[in-house]
Nucleic acid binder design. Structure first.
Lengths: 234, 234
DNA sequence: TTAAGAATCGAACGAACGTTCGGTAACCTT
DNA sequence: AAGGTTACCGAACGTTCGTTCGATTCTTAA
């Protein structure tokens, strides 16, 4: 009998009454049981398949083939396909936020902190392309409890970025819409999975610098904008 | 017997030996047969469902329900689910490019032409959210002939934008990577479908101006960038 | 050495999938 | 009014889907 969770299915939020008590959280004690290590590998394989074929397009049979495990065997590690997607997204999101917060301790300068945000994102993004594509491409796939838990983490990440930008705005006395700036920035850095080719494009560090320059110049410079496109016509 | 195409299936590229000879192309004569008008409505309904559930997640039965037509009846208008996606993407892409080229005739000024590009994209994007989401979200879904035809149109659109930016760069004597600028810009304006809320956010025109300012200031201003994040640490 | 639990498996379940087929109804031309 | 074409439908086909079940092997601690 697998997954001796008592009532995780009913609680609506607690998707964590999982097996050998660690559940991949990279937290507290480095227990990392046999179960956890195997699960981590399965998540990795699954992310690759979801990345290739999309969540709906990938079958559990595809996953079992990629993982070298029988179809039934997979269900020892997660309770459903949806749960699998949830675990991938949660682990990916938590890791990128964790690393970011570590790196943000390095600087108090507002502009540099924004650069750190961008560099952290791109570095993790390009080093974990598959999982990050699954995170961004399938962000409306999860429903109900699992979906709202992931959406909460996403808002947390959004908020961190927004705070960094508003700190910058305050410090430099600028004027711009925080929401628009954050979402413009997210667009630039999340869109990368659709085109980045390691044989043609810069590596993560260089790309982060270029994108930071492009974005920060746009945000930092005064609004000497050519006003409105004239509706002139013959 | 439906779709009296002779050998469209074999030719690999010519997906256009379609029924009553017009095939939605909005071209030459405004024939717009009964067939074409019904097909256009079906594409619209289908785009809504694909937008909601994704291409793989949407079933032909979902589509038949949304269109108020029997499952079998749908196949009178297209030959497969994949063909349906292809028709949606082609029609959407062709329309946005067509409108863009019309609008670009309005100005010879390099900067303003970039603004026109952005405004055209956002205006069409927000007025046809569903179809545009299907275009951007499912851009790797189509395979083989249909896929490479859509990818060719996409390259055409990319090229138009690249040319506009390089014209701007030449005129103002600037220095930046065209590829990175185009893809950064595409990121900003394509990402919108993931967050835009008409009750909270600006309308297309105002959004286009804000995004244009953000992007153009980033591109136009000199590289007075704070160099590299120091690897300093305790 | 053994017994309990964790890990894995083959085989099967019912449901849902995209597509097809033969037929009927609606429409248009003559 | 007739006849041919277009538009549409109910019912089914074969396949694939996510998931489950009972049984078997592996691992581990006493």
């Amino acid at each position: 009998m697998a997954l001796q969770n008592t009532e995780t299915r009913l609680s609506g939020y607690a998707f964590d009454g999982r097996k050998g008590r660690t559940a991949l959280s990279s937290g507290e004690e480095g227990v990392d049981s046999r179960f956890d290590r195997r699960l981590a590998k399965l998540l990795h394989h699954a992310a690759q398949i979801f990345c290739e074929k999309g969540y709906e397009g990938a079958s559990m049979r595809d996953l079992s083939r990629a993982a070298g495990m029988s179809l039934a065997g997979l269900y020892h590690y997660f309770e459903s396909k949806e749960d699998l997607l949830y675990l991938i997204q949660k682990h990916t999101f938590r890791t990128i936020i964790e690393r970011l917060q570590e790196r943000l301790k390095e600087s108090k300068d507002a502009e540099e902190r924004v650069r750190i945000f961008i560099e952290n994102h791109l570095e993790y993004f390009l080093a974990n392309k598959e999982a990050m594509k699954v995170l961004t491409h399938e962000d409306e796939t999860l429903k109900n409890g699992r979906g709202s838990e992931i959406r909460a983490i996403k808002r947390e990440y959004y908020k961190i970025c927004l705070d960094l930008l508003e700190e910058l705005r305050r410090e430099k006395g600028l004027q711009f819409s925080g929401r628009l700036a954050v979402l413009g920035l997210f667009g630039m850095i999340n869109w990368i999975y659709t085109w980045h080719n390691p044989r043609v494009d810069l590596d993560a560090g260089a790309m982060a610098e270029e994108m930071s320059n492009l974005f920060l110049r746009g945000v930092l410079n005064p609004g000497k904008t050519k006003r409105k496109i004239a509706k002139t016509n013959a």
